Each structure stands twice: as structure tokens, then as C-alpha cells.
Computed example of a mutant assay.
Amino acid sequence: MKLSEATWTEVRDADVDVAFLPVGSTEQHGPHAPLGTDALAAETVADEAAGRASAADVEVAVAPPVHVGVSEEHRRFDGTLWVSPETFRAYVRETIESLAFHGVDRVVVVNGHGGNVEALAEATRRVSRDDDVDAYAVAFTWFEAVGDHAGDMGHAGKLETSLLRELAPDLVREERVDAARDGAAARWGEWVRGVNLSHDSDEFSENGVVGDPTAGDADLGEELLDRASDALVDVAAAVVDR
């Protein structure tokens, strides 16, 4: 069930086991991929996993996605939007609390943006520990759940571009992919003795890309979606049983 497409009476009458709250960002993804990449990925993984969970008798309500996240590290690239970690945590927490108010007391936040990870860990811990809120929540980041491919995650590189080629190929500016690779950084940040000296992505990447966007295709994107969705189903079942 997608909450944005359901009526209030349908939600009232549904027997929902767990909610998915997709969260992403609106931020640069190089010259070849859209600003909304992270939110699109999170929502698609949530939708796909909801269908698979239903087949396994776990009923899921998918909340509308959060499109603006903790993305100040990309602020030098036009179009990027961001909020503070405090604002983001509050928004996510209060959304979970509103779900709990209607009896949906198990929530998995489905994340598509690395910059959100720390804030989401804190937000879900706080809401789960709050004795005044009858809810339990965890955060799931899709690219951390794709097995041996997880090590290829950069930014607008192999994994994200492959997933986009599967989900929304018309949004990938294929004529710019080679240039995106040529202006990319090999890794995230500038590291000395385990310390990243860079706070913003423009300090180490000419065009905002990290990794090689030419290295993957739609077949890899399909595999990534499959792996992430299956992992999310397992997490959802565990959260329901907790």
C-alpha cells in the first residue's frame, strides 16, 4: 500500500505490519545523473520490497519519500538542497511518530543517501527509546545491502548509474557519461592516516562524481535492485517479529 495513493478509510481498514519511509536527497550526481537520484532509488527499493513482502504475508505501507536530506557536502554544485542534521532528524522522527499514532508501530527508514546515515541512526534510536512513543524503527541503506558490490559505491559512479539505467534510463544523460568519468575522483575524500581532510565534495572531485559511471549497465542495476529489495524484506520481517 502506498499511502499517497490510498484513502484514509483504506488505511484504517488495512492490517499493516510495517511501514517503509523512503528518504533520499536532492543533490548533484555529476553532469549525467539527476539531482533526485537518491530519493528515486530509495522509493523504488521500498516499493519493490513491499511487493515481495506482501507475497510473504508481511503487509507494508510505503510512506511518501523525503526528498531533501543532509547534503551540505555537495553545496558547491548548483541545484543541491540540504537541511541541517537536526532538522532532518526531527522531520524523520515526527513522521515515524505520526505513523505510530495510527497504529503502525514498526518502521524501516529506507535510505538512498550516504550523508543521511549518521542522522538516521540517531533518529531511529531516539524514537525507539522514547517511552512516550509506541514505536520501533531502524534505518536501512540500500547500497550497504548489495553484498560484494557494496565496495563499488562511490557517488554517481558504477552502482548508482547502473541502478538508474535499470529504473529510469531516460534520466541518464548518456552523452555525458564519458566526461563524467574523466572528471571523477577515484575515491571519496582526501585521506591522511585515516582522517578525511575534505568536508565538501568539490575539494576532491572536479564534477562531483566518485567512481566510474561507465563501468555498469542495466543488468547490474537489475541485480542491485534485486539484492537490495530481498535484503529489505528480510529486515522488515525481523522488525515485525521483534
Results as ranks from 00 to 15, higher is better:
53 A>G: 02
23 V>K: 03
168 A>K: 01
183 G>S: 09
5 E>S: 05
71 S>G: 13
144 E>M: 14
40 L>T: 11
35 L>D: 07
47 D>S: 06
162 S>C: 08
171 L>G: 02
112 G>H: 00
171 L>C: 04
175 E>K: 08
229 S>C: 12
93 R>I: 13
181 R>W: 05
168 A>G: 02
231 A>Y: 08
122 E>N: 08
116 N>T: 05
198 S>Q: 11
77 F>V: 09
222 E>F: 10
117 V>I: 15
7 T>E: 10
77 F>S: 02
95 T>P: 02
53 A>H: 04
175 E>L: 10
26 T>I: 14
79 G>F: 08
101 F>H: 05
204 F>S: 12
207 N>V: 14
183 G>A: 07
211 G>M: 08
123 A>C: 02
85 P>H: 03
216 G>A: 11
209 V>H: 09
218 A>K: 07
29 H>K: 09
58 V>Y: 09
200 D>K: 10
102 H>D: 04
127 V>D: 04
53 A>V: 12
73 E>P: 00
161 T>W: 00
177 V>K: 07
220 L>N: 09
226 D>A: 06
190 E>A: 15
210 V>W: 07
111 N>V: 08
201 S>C: 12
12 R>F: 06
154 G>V: 10
80 T>K: 11
141 T>P: 01
89 R>P: 01
189 G>T: 15
199 H>W: 13
69 G>N: 08
83 V>R: 09
137 A>R: 12
216 G>Y: 09
239 V>W: 00
104 V>I: 15
177 V>T: 06
194 G>T: 12
18 V>D: 00
206 E>N: 06
22 P>M: 06
64 P>H: 04
81 L>N: 07
95 T>R: 04
135 A>P: 01
45 V>Q: 08
12 R>N: 09
69 G>L: 08
71 S>F: 07
115 G>K: 06
176 R>K: 15
178 D>A: 15
238 A>Q: 05
31 P>L: 06
101 F>S: 01
145 A>C: 13
147 G>L: 07
49 A>R: 09
122 E>F: 06
129 R>P: 03
98 S>K: 08
214 T>Q: 12
19 A>C: 04
217 D>H: 05
180 A>W: 02
147 G>F: 05
17 D>V: 03
96 I>G: 04
70 V>W: 05
65 P>S: 13
186 A>L: 10
239 V>N: 14
125 R>I: 11
135 A>R: 02
156 A>V: 13
70 V>M: 14
184 A>C: 10
141 T>Y: 00
138 V>N: 07
21 L>K: 10
53 A>D: 06
186 A>T: 01
71 S>N: 05
226 D>G: 06
76 R>M: 08
66 V>Y: 15
180 A>I: 04
147 G>A: 01
1 M>L: 09
134 D>L: 03
25 S>C: 14
183 G>I: 10
98 S>V: 05
110 V>L: 03
178 D>K: 14
216 G>N: 01
96 I>K: 02
198 S>C: 14
90 A>R: 13
112 G>S: 11
3 L>Y: 03
235 V>D: 04
238 A>C: 02
133 V>N: 12
204 F>T: 14
